[in-house]
Design a protein around this nucleic acid. Sequence first.
DNA 1: AAAACGGGGCT
DNA 2: AGCCCAGTTTT
Length: 405
Amino acid sequence: MEQNDIKTFFSTELLGWYRLIKRDLPWRMNRDPYRVWVSEIMLQQTRVDTVIPYYNQFMSRFPTVTALAEAPETEVLKSWEGLGYYSRARNLQAGAREVKERYGGIVPDDKASVAGLKGVGPYTSGAIMSIAFNRPEPAVDGNVMRVLSRYFCLEDDIAKPSTRVGIEKLAVSLIPEGAAGDFNQALMELGALVCTPKSPSCLPCPVMEHCAARLSGRETELPIKTKAKPPRAEFRTAAIVMGSGEQEGKILVRQRPETGLLAQMWELPHLLLPPDKAKLLADTAPKEQGELAEMISRMLESDTSMLIRPRSWFTDADHIFSHIHWKMRFYLADLGEEAGALEAAAASAGKGNALVAAESTAEYAADARAGQAEASSIYRWIGKEDMETLPFPNLFLRILKQFWA
DNA sequence: AAAACGGGGCT
DNA sequence: AGCCCAGTTTT
């Protein structure tokens, strides 16, 4: 059979299959461009099952572009809490504000305008244009690269940006006349339900008979993809500082900087350990680390001008981001009058009031500067009920819940 | 071109 | 416990 017939077969069979079995997802209720837009942003790097509850809550709280544009930023961030990649939420709201101001609150039926919105890249602009407006644009995500790599037996590394560009050209050529939205969703649906990464279910696949990878028995070898580097380890000590007097029953939290990791989210105060101290955390029992407790307490004194007394070890927690592995140790601390046991231990370890040892690495220096630049104005005492208002990343939310359990 | 940027699911 | 998933922005 000729290549063009193989392509036509693919498009026709896939589209027919999708129209029979497509899942009933909340963002498929209608073609409202705003609903499509929100769903596509949430679905970046995130599975359908995870997104569904967030999507429903988000749409009821921010039903229109204007509602989102006019909402307080913290509220938007709070609604994104636990979803990850928080710049998506801030970019989405920035986009909503642009649509409100420049396009009167109507998402424009124009590729360049949509592609110009913050947080909207090649995939998302293609998805919005095709799904909401039925324009023949490619929407190439990981599913699509996997499906097409297998069906056409493409051996390019899908981790390379240039590969996506090539697959986009192929994808456009496959779009059936007048069915761009359904076809693009069909491609992703097949990748999600049938042509899965690990063990694809070829037997029920609507296009198996002309799948080049399957025909040559190579469906599990494709697509080719270079593996990511493992995350680098970072050791951090953190404190749960319990207030007294006015602050009785409250604890000390702070807001992260405007940019970078977990930007603008709230957190328990913590400190990146230089490599030599990190070994201490890794190798020594929590209760014998007066020195580490002492370091975080000195950092807090310098930031807040309050006398912080570490009292006891609370818990250890690991958190793995895509590029960093945080190994954290939490101490309970208060503003007590007398020195705590841990401080005594630190003193006997021979550490006086000297500041934390000079930075050993560029990373540590950068972290220390960022911490200092934001110091003092970003700290705040919160009670249990404030957890419902301030956005915290999951790792800190878990610790807070454990503390207030 | 490579790194930064979360969090959860599967085996 | 280790491996996998992968869009956009920034460097």
